[in-house]
């Protein structure tokens, strides 16, 4: 068993070298530099390493997974440093640092207030310390307060008031005869019949859906029937979400296979 492990490792290394050489020598009909050939091969092998999890958990998957964690953490840190610390903080606190990083210095009478996020940021890092961890609650409180303050008005306006007002739609149409009523009955065309049907479903669906979520009253009688309709509407909603989720996940697989077939193997144009 141990020998098999080393045999597989050797095979992977040999395949990697062969792929690198083939890519670099233009074996796929494309002239790549040695570095480009290495990078494409590396990307392909990392892709295959992750996919190997489908068979079972293995060291190649673990290698790729651990590499991903390290690289992604560093990526976010670097972007955060250059974009926000260098881009927004340094220009407001120090001319020297601004000159060093070649960002325009922005003097201002109230810039000393920018000491607040620095202090709170350092306190947040205290979470790494075994004794001063409680100090990290101060920046956490700032984050929580900001999020609560920002969300309160926006959710009330966009996800409550506007949604309610958008639900009050005309449920009957102007009667202009049978011919007009039954015209344009393609569901995407939006003729009078379809419009009426759509608006009815939206109005009743939203109302019954909310009734279903109202747990302060027992779901019996008329209330229970409305709640039942609410469940059906929600089931259609979840069905639609499932359909879209499948579509999304398949797209991701297609994306990876496209990379393997196009950039690595060069078998599709």
């Amino acid at each position: 068993m141990k020998n098999l492990k080393w045999f597989v490792l050797a095979a992977v290394c040999i395949l990697f070298a062969v792929s690198w050489f083939a890519k670099a020598s233009g074996g796929d009909g494309v002239d790549n530099s040695v570095l480009d050939a290495f990078l494409v091969t590396l990307a392909a092998f990392l892709t295959l390493a992750i996919m190997s999890f489908l068979y079972q958990d293995n060291p190649y998957y673990k290698f790729a997974e651990h590499l991903f964690v390290g690289v992604s953490a560093a990526y976010w840190m670097c972007l955060g440093f250059w974009s926000t610390v260098v881009g927004n903080l340094f220009p407001r606190i120090s001319e020297g640092l601004s000159n060093f990083f070649l960002v325009p210095y922005q003097p201002g009478p109230l810039n000393f207030f920018f000491a607040i996020p620095i202090i709170l940021g350092i306190l947040l890092l205290m979470r790494l310390s075994p004794k001063g961890g409680w100090l990290s609650r101060w920046p956490l409180a700032f984050i929580v307060g900001t999020t609560a303050g920002l969300n309160f008005v926006r959710y009330l306006r966009s996800d409550f008031v506007k949604q309610i007002s958008s639900t009050f739609v005309p449920l009957v149409v102007d009667w202009q005869g049978f011919g007009h009523f039954f015209s344009n009955i393609s569901l995407t065309a939006g003729g009078p019949l379809v419009m009426m049907l759509t608006n009815l479903v939206i109005f009743i669906g939203v109302f019954c859906g909310i009734v279903y979520f109202f747990f302060s009253k027992e779901h019996t009688g008329v209330f229970g029937k409305a709640s039942r309709v609410g469940i059906w509407i929600l089931m259609i909603t979840f069905g639609a979400s499932f359909g879209y989720t499948v579509m999304g996940r398949i797209s991701l697989l297609v994306g990876r296979l496209t990379f393997l077939f196009t950039d690595w193997l060069g078998i599709i144009g």
Partner: peptide
């Protein structure tokens, strides 16, 4: 303009 940290804070 690139990236800025802060999610909805940036938008605000």
């Amino acid at each position: 303009m690139g990236y800025k940290a802060g999610n909805e804070g940036v938008l605000n």
